[in-house]
């Protein structure tokens, strides 16, 4: 009898500690969608590049012309916007189902801590573009994205950390294979997201769905 009371105490403590400091409505399914968009985006980019020159050659440092660069940039932005819109939609839906709030101190904290390193990375990638260091952009995106995830994992599911480290390591490896940036990008933002999303969905969402 007394035992049960203490067991309940401990589970209450754990529950409140995580609910008050971590945002736990993040949807796993959103990761799967983000991954699919990224792979689609890569395919579109491949086609765009193939239309111009042979794909591999044009991915080499600074041998890309301004027009195709602009198109690639737009594809990247489209992938980003689609991924964010889907994530917001699915996360709101999940929060409603479980009766949590979407916009509170935990989600604000998560967003600030995620976007601070990511924005710095984004600006840095634009600088690389400015100096024509095209080959380094994909590895840089992966590295900064990985760091942002590792940083943000403290404010949501800890599992996010492993996705962060995977992207970080992949980004560092990609620095040694500059002409294959697009493929590394597809693995990091596409494949890793899908694997991670399915894993998260099975672990947290399926029970409540």
């Amino acid at each position: 009898m007394e035992n049960e009371k203490y067991l309940k105490d401990i589970s209450d403590i754990k529950h409140l500690m995580s609910r008050s400091s971590r945002f736990i409505s993040l949807s796993g399914l959103a990761g799967v969608f983000a991954g699919c968009y990224a792979i689609l985006g890569t395919v579109v980019a491949e086609i765009l590049l193939a239309e111009h020159n042979s794909a591999i050659a044009s991915l080499r440092l600074s041998s890309i012309n301004a027009e195709i660069l602009m198109r690639l940039f737009l594809v990247a932005i489209a992938v980003l916007v689609l991924a964010i819109v889907t994530a917001v939609f699915l996360t709101t839906r999940k929060a409603k189902k479980t009766g949590e709030k979407t916009w509170d101190s935990t989600s604000k904290r998560l967003l600030i801590n995620f976007f601070a390193p990511l924005t710095a990375g984004g600006i840095f990638c634009l600088v690389l573009l400015q100096y024509g260091l095209i080959g380094l952009i994909a590895p840089c995106m992966l590295i900064f994205y990985g760091l942002a995830l590792i940083h943000a994992s403290k404010y949501t599911f800890g599992d996010l950390r492993s996705l962060g480290y995977s992207n970080l390591i992949l980004g560092l490896i990609a620095t040694q294979f500059l002409s294959y940036g697009l493929y590394f990008w597809a693995i990091g933002f596409g494949l890793f997201h899908i694997v991670y999303g399915i894993w998260m969905y099975n672990k947290y969402d399926r029970r409540n769905a």
Binding site: D9, D12, I13, L16, M17, S18, R19, S20, S21, K101, D104, S105
Partner: peptide
């Protein structure tokens, strides 16, 4: 127990959020 749990992992908490959490 609940109040202390929340305050252990957060720098601070205001009245409303404590009320909602508990």
């Amino acid at each position: 127990l609940g109040i202390m749990s929340v305050l252990m992992v957060n720098e601070y908490a205001d009245f409303t959020s404590l009320k909602e959490l508990l």
